[in-house]
Structures are given as structure tokens and as C-alpha cells.
Design a protein around this nucleic acid. Structure first.
Lengths: 212, 212
DNA sequence: GTCTATAGTGAGATAGAC
DNA sequence: GTCTATCTCACTATAGAC
């Protein structure tokens, strides 16, 4: 059972900030809009967060940790790569689908080389560390599958980049993604289909004979 | 032979703006930095472009048209889907690799639902139209392959989303991408390998028996 | 913990001389 | 076609009352 409670101001700010940063990126968000939508004055934000940068990195960390939690049981499981890889990908997709802001924020964390002031280098490196740690668990599964000759000897790093693109981009793709797919991205049926298709593609790529 | 000439101010601005918008997005770029790097005063920018938004959309259009030109001969060719699809993907990758800013700008155009003032709605819609037109040519190839029973009856729209992720994300992924792959992304050898791996994955996904 | 007031900076954009 | 000067506005952040 989930405990219900009125969100604290801090929680409310983080919730609103997550949506705004996902939509517009770090530079595209003004603290005025954030304050208004949080039901607070602009200055009150600084009681909860030292700066806009600190807030942004805290939002990123929260999103990444949510994803990590989803993946943890899969990583802990003792099954072989043939079962573990689909389970990993499906868990990631579920995590991205559960919270529509996650994919966009994750995508921004992945491809935007933000240059933060040095007083929050520690937070920035923590975020990058979580990203690399998550990706490391995927690479380990692919590598294990290759070692066991269950998968073809593909480039592990390219397989990882392809997996990121296939999962994260799709759920970040917004209006254009919906124009391409011809329907909502976050509807339950669409998520189900995407899970099937991505797993099919990735397994197909990992197992197809290179001499087609 | 390419004609060499000193770039006009307009060309110089577009060139600098392309790099800056790719790095920091629309909101993250200031006209002062753009002017300085172009060797002009801030006000001079407004002689060439009506507003920052007009400039941004012109940059996007230029990048997209460059990609379109690369794809045109492939689309015109009369070969079947089994040859045309790899050729299409390789042409896209070549286009993205040729100009390191292209992938990031294209990615931004794809997933950022920018909300521009209405006086440049026409330009925004033109950009979106080019994107959809490009994607349409890929979907047509996939659909044709399915109709000819060369490809498995996968979801065409999901195949398209996966292709975008596998191509565009990789070349947009910057520092983290280089950390994942363990080397430069735009080195000739890395590009070659990426071409091979992506084509292998996509063909694998399109031809693998769904009952693995 | 929230507010008003404001500092201090830089943004995008315009006017008009040259 | 480029410049200086300037306008107006929004921004992040701080000070200090309540």
C-alpha cells in the first residue's frame, strides 16, 4: 500500500521542476514559472534549493534512481542472458513509460554536455556515475551472452548505443513520435507493443547471422 | 570541384549558430556569444535575421535539407527493399557523421516540442514537414519489404522509431557516448563500424523469426 | 517557511548615425 | 551593412521583515 500524504513544498517543487525541465531543458526554464506552478513565491524556491543548478541535478538524480530501482531486481536475478536481456529492456521501458518525463530528462542527461559551475561538479559527476552504472549492467549482460555464444559477437558498445536509442528516444519523442506512430505513445496498448517490438529488434540484432 | 569563397556575414552567422544551437539548444544560446564568434556586433545579427527564432529555424532547415540531399539518390534508386534499406540507413549515417552538429540539431528538432511565437509558425511547420517527409521515405521502404515478404510483419512505425534512435541518438551522444564506446564517435573507423552494426541490427530485427 | 523588495546582470530587440 | 546607444524585460539570487 502506498502512503498518501499532502506533498511538502519541496516535493511539489521537484514535481513541477521535473515536468518543466523535461519540456524545456535547463536553460529553457525560468524560476518564475516554476514558482507560480508550485504555488510559491520565487524567493521561496531558494529556501529549498541553493540554486537552479542544484535543483536541476536533484531532479535528474531522482529520475535516474527511480529507473535504477526498476532495474535492480532484474540485475539481481540469476537467469541467463537470453532471459535477462529482455527482462532488463522491459523493465527500462516500464520505468520510462510509468513517468512520462523520465525519458526526456534521461535523454537530456545523455546527450547534453552541460557545463555546470564547479560548486556543483560533485552532483554532476554523481548523475553521470548513475548513468554509466546503469549502462554498465546492460553491457555486462550483452557481453555474457556473447561469451556464452548465445549472442553473435557484435560490438557491445554499439549494441548499447542502439538499445539507448530504441528505448529512450521513443518515449522522449513527443509530438513527432506520435505523428510517426499515429497515436499516443503512453497509452497502455502502445507501451505493450513497444516492449514487444524493441525486444524483438534487439534480440534479432543480437542473434541474427552476420552473413545475411 | 567545390567553389571556394570567403563566407558572407550571413553564412558565417549560420555556421556559428549551427554549432551553438547544437551544443546548447535554442534557449541556451545568447546572441552576444553568437555575435562575438561571428565577428559582428549584436545588432548586426538583426540585419540578417528578423529574430533569434527565425535564425534557429533557418539553421534547422539547412541541416535537414543537407540530409535530404544525401538521401535523395537512394530514394530515387530502383533497387528492392533488401538493398534500399541498408543504403538509406548508410546514407543517413554518412550525413550525420559528415557534419558533427547535424545529429544534435536533428535530435532537438525531433523531441523538443518548441513553442514558437505565431509569426514563425510557417517556418516551424516547414521544418516539421521536412522531418516527416524524410521519415516517410524510410517507412515506405519498410512497408514495401513487408508487402514483398522480405521482412517480417513488424510494426512499421516502431521500426522507424527504432531506426531514429539507433542512428540519430548515437551521433548526438557526445561525451557520454564516447564514454560508452570508449573512443571518439566521429573518427572514420568508428563511423564505419557504426554503419555496419546499425545495418546489422536493423536488418536482424526486420528479418528475425518472431518465434525466437 | 514564506513573503516583498531589490540588487545585479544579461537577455532580445530597436533607433538611428555612419 | 555595421556600428553605438538604448529600451524593455526577464533572469538568478539575496536581504530582511513577518
Amino acid at each position: 500500500m502506498v502512503e498518501r500524504h499532502e506533498p511538502t513544498s519541496r516535493e511539489k517543487i521537484l514535481e513541477v521542476a521535473e515536468a518543466l525541465f523535461a519540456r524545456s531543458g535547463f536553460a529553457g526554464v525560468g524560476l518564475r514559472e516554476l514558482a507560480d506552478r508550485s504555488g510559491l513565491g520565487k524567493s521561496s524556491l531558494f529556501h529549498h534549493f541553493r540554486s537552479k543548478g542544484h535543483l536541476y541535478l536533484e531532479v535528474l538524480r531522482t529520475v535516474l534512481e527511480r529507473i535504477q530501482e526498476r532495474l535492480a531486481p532484474v540485475i539481481r536475478s540469476q537467469s541467463g542472458p537470453a532471459e535477462k536481456l529482455p527482462a532488463w529492456v522491459e523493465a527500462l521501458i516500464d520505468a520510462l513509460a510509468e513517468h512520462p518525463n523520465s525519458a526526456r530528462l534521461l535523454l537530456r542527461a545523455l546527450f547534453e554536455d552541460d557545463d555546470f559551475p564547479e560548486d556543483l561538479e560533485p552532483q554532476a559527476q554523481e548523475v553521470e556515475g548513475i548513468v554509466m552504472s546503469i549502462l554498465g549492467t546492460y553491457q555486462a549482460i550483452v557481453q555474457q551472452g556473447i561469451d556464452l555464444e548465445i549472442f553473435q559477437p557484435v560490438s557491445v558498445t554499439d549494441a548499447t548505443q542502439t538499445m539507448i536509442g530504441a528505448t529512450v528516444y521513443h518515449f522522449a519523442s513527443g509530438e513527432i513520435g506520435e505523428a510517426v506512430t499515429g497515436g499516443p505513445i503512453f497509452a497502455a496498448a502502445a507501451i505493450q507493443r513497444r516492449r514487444r517490438e524493441v525486444v524483438h529488434f534487439l534480440i534479432g540484432g543480437l542473434t541474427a547471422d552476420p552473413t545475411h
